[in-house]
Design a protein around this nucleic acid. Structure first.
Length: 428
RNA sequence: GCGGGCGUCGCCAAGUGGUUAAGGCAGUGGCUUGUGGCGCCGCUAUUCGGGGGUUCGAAUCCCCUCGCUCGCCCCA
């Protein structure tokens, strides 16, 4: 077998699977539209520097997971590992300060070079939403509820919302000092991975999965205790409002998330049904990112939903495709021309039609129509073509002796009536 | 990058040293050239992910390699 194969960690989505994808995407996009969130599309490819600066060089994503290569002009390019940096770049480039606040969404492929496993691929898809220019605690709540409602609209159950606050830069550096002191003292009790992180990214030690380290961390300084009054108040408001809106959440002081740009609110939505990669949605506030990247000081908050994981969680009801309404059986030279003509006309209706192109025997074409569970068929042979008419027949599975009718090609009214009576009306 | 499990047809599989590699689904041709569910009869892997070795004999045993998969790390 030396046939070509797809690259590791990439997948082909075949027609049957795409039915579910399309249904899920449709529900999401409609929901975003109703919330007046507008779409933005940015290139999949960006200069490497954008992600190094935006996401942070110390992060795992940047230090070991990027698809980076030199183009023919020797420029270092990277396939985007996430969407926020690109959106921010696009906004700065197009003059964010001159525009009012905006609510944006994007959807598309992202790339991270990791070992694939359940719910993780090298090319995967994200839906992202970014509220740019919004500073109030209410925008945090709005973002969280938006994510929550999308998941609910898709009928996904058994979700856990976890929230935390990382404070502002000042809060965080105060905490970090205290935390580092504590880490020095307790260094030897930590697991090896965590020890390595002390220099590289101490905050991340907080969300270790190592059971022992977790236990020891219970006695470590807590970030909440280092929050300024303003930061704390903001955090309390968010918790209160979530309660009022009846969105269940758990506080997780160890939730720090892997990207450097977060401030204040950080949140994650997980599902126990996903295996070890449990996060469906992750997000948070990034008030400093835009200015860090050269824009004017602009607060912002956003989240990203992993579409593959979303698809795994979505119900079977979204997998069903619409049935064929009319299958057009045709054979013979004149008949074939007439069938093509008729099939084009039928596309002016809200119908799903299929024109048989096989030229096979009538018997075969009927079998095909039956296999497709077509609701009705049109039959055109040379006999009909000669008289400029066609036979249309209901074709459901239970009733075998279906009524059929002969209609002249020019008799639009009669066709309309038949479709109304037998197909169009039935659906509503 | 590191562990565990697994690779027999498009899919699901039986076979665990004896040479014609079961079976089912799907596909396809026919019974039935203009008429559909069911049924019946054909066809569909010179080969068991690939390479090497052991043996009279290998899908079956050994070595290497590739791939898939689950987990660690981290994330969506």
């Amino acid at each position: 077998m030396n046939n070509f194969k797809n690259l590791r960690g990439t997948v082909d989505l075949l027609p049957d699977q795409l039915i579910k994808w399309q249904n899920v995407e449709k529900i999401i996009i409609e929901q975003l539209f109703r919330a007046s969130v507008k779409e933005i599309r940015t290139p999949i490819l960006e200069m490497t520097e954008l992600f190094m600066r935006g996401i942070g060089e110390g992060t795992d994503v940047v230090s070991k997971e990027m698809y980076t290569f030199l183009d023919r002009g020797e420029r270092s390019c990277t396939l985007r590992p996430e969407g926020t940096a690109s959106v921010v770049r696009a906004l700065i480039q197009n003059g964010v300060s001159s525009k009012p606040s905006q609510k944006l969404w994007y959807m598309g492929p992202m790339f991270r070079y990791e070992r694939p496993q359940a719910g993780r691929q090298r090319q995967f898809h994200q839906l992202g939403v970014e509220f740019v220019g919004y500073e109030s605690a209410r925008s945090d709540i709005e973002i969280i509820t938006l994510a929550w409602d999308i998941l609910e609209k898709l009928g996904i159950k058994e979700l856990n919302l976890e929230i935390n606050t990382l404070g502002d830069q000042n809060d965080r550096s105060n905490f970090q000092k205290a935390f580092l002191k504590w880490l020095e003292v307790n260094k030897n009790s930590l697991d090896l991975d965590s020890q390595k992180r002390i220099d590289k990214n101490p905050l991340r030690i907080l969300d270790t999965k190592n059971v022992q380290t977790k236990k020891i961390l219970e006695d470590s300084p807590k970030l909440v205790d280092f929050l300024s009054e303003k930061s704390l108040e903001r955090y309390l408001t968010i918790k209160d409002k979530l309660k009022l809106l009846k969105i269940p959440f758990i506080e997780n002081f160890n939730l720090v998330r892997g990207l450097d740009y977060y401030t204040h609110t950080a949140f994650e939505i997980t599902s126990g049904l996903l295996g070890s990669q449990a996060t469906v949605c992750g997000g948070g506030r990034y008030d400093n990112l835009i200015s860090q990247m050269g824009g004017t000081e602009t607060p912002a908050i956003g989240f990203a939903i992993g579409l593959e994981r979303l698809i795994l969680l979505s119900g079977k009801d979204l997998e069903e495709s619409r049935e064929t309404d009319i299958y057009i059986v045709n054979k013979g030279l004149n008949a074939e021309t007439m069938a093509m003509d008729l099939s084009r006309k039928l596309r002016n209706y809200d119908l799903k039609t299929e024109l048989d192109l096989s030229g096979a025997s009538f018997s075969k074409q009927f079998k095909k129509a039956n296999k497709l569970k077509s609701k009705s068929i049109i039959v055109i042979g040379d006999d009909e073509a000669l008289k400029n008419e066609f036979i249309i027949r209901l074709f459901n599975q239970e009733n075998f002796e279906n009524m059929e009718e002969t209609i002249s090609v020019d008799d639009v009214t009669k066709l309309d009536n038949w479709l109304d009576k037998n197909l169009l009306l039935k659906r509503s």
